[in-house]
Amino acid sequence: MELNVLSQFHDDRTIVVVSGEIDLYTAPRLHSEIAAALADGRPPWLVVDMSGVEFCDSTGMNVLLSCLRRARERGGELQIAAPRPAVRKILQVTGLDSVFPLAGDADQPKPAVPQ
């Protein structure tokens, strides 16, 4: 029932690596970590690597939506990378799969998929 968030800062983008479970208990920490990555002075281009997320509910989607909005307000983008079935499921049942850009899609602009 833990959540781990690790931000890797690059010149042109930030990669936020999230693992564990996202729900009402862990969502506030996810929000503050991503908000810090979007702080003034940082590039507004974010890739949220969700390959380690084993559970995510609508509270987690609300956090990501809020941060996507913030990134776009600053002229950037928030992409989701490597969603596992748990994340794909909540994206699909909330209808937000059409809202979040997936890193690695051919028609998405930069940043590219982190290696």
């Binding site: 609300n62 939506l65 996507l68 809202v99």
Partner: peptide, 20 residues
């Protein structure tokens, strides 16, 4: 459940629980 064309500014940040 937003349509594909819904601007993200119009999407609520809560209220999806029952749909899930």
């Amino acid at each position: 459940r937003p349509g594909p064309a819904a601007p993200i500014a119009q999407l609520p940040e809560s209220g999806r629980g029952l749909a899930v």
